[in-house]
Design a protein around this nucleic acid. Sequence first.
DNA 1: TGAAATTATGCTGGATTCGACATATTCTCT
DNA 2: AGAGAATATGTCGAATCCAGCATAATTTCA
Lengths: 105, 105
Amino acid sequence: MNNQRRKKLEAAGWRVGNAADFLGLTETEDAFITVKLLLSRRLKEERERRKLTQKEMAERIHLTQSRIARMEASDREVTIDALLKALFATGVSRQEVAKTLTRAA
Amino acid sequence: MNNQRRKKLEAAGWRVGNAADFLGLTETEDAFITVKLLLSRRLKEERERRKLTQKEMAERIHLTQSRIARMEASDREVTIDALLKALFATGVSRQEVAKTLTRAA
DNA sequence: TGAAATTATGCTGGATTCGACATATTCTCT
DNA sequence: AGAGAATATGTCGAATCCAGCATAATTTCA
């Protein structure tokens, strides 16, 4: 199992090594997790582009460092709602978000 | 206040007639609600294009009619996560979702 | 008009997520 | 290696969301 897939499964709440390897993800789950992954990556890119630490980023958009960390990790408990709010608060436009979603998984 | 704005405010949990008219929404809130509105519209369009009732639609993607109704209404309690899952379950692709987000608010 | 179908809204208990803080782990230098 | 910065993870109470069911309101059409 490659690393990309491993991360995707873990984000979905799977523990690598269980039945997911055999069952696979449904297309719906796959598309959903991909969106989440793309948005979390974009959030991290935005932060790095601005050369900010997670702490600094958090302060600017009124969150905590831990929350930013989990968002960037595309953690299970993080919703797409939360990611979008963070991206918009960071100044990313709706059009840019749309473009991000077209990226290859 | 036009109808578009009224719906947007109500979706955000405002009761029309309160201070929102004077304060306005922040840009972040506005972008977020707009995304939600565009996705809920798309969901309704998909259903109507297939000439399905909410009940039929609900059965196909394993939800209830009331849930579909609230999603299409862009109800406050409905998350973007839920809307995306419904859209993907309906067969809309990630690329199509992205395109939907570029529509005019 | 009025019955049937369709859509919208009220409610509730259980599950999930959020924000916040503490602490652990990893990374980056010298 | 070791200090300090940066990032990741554990936990918890409060807030929010979800599924499901009942019922109200609206629409359709004979």
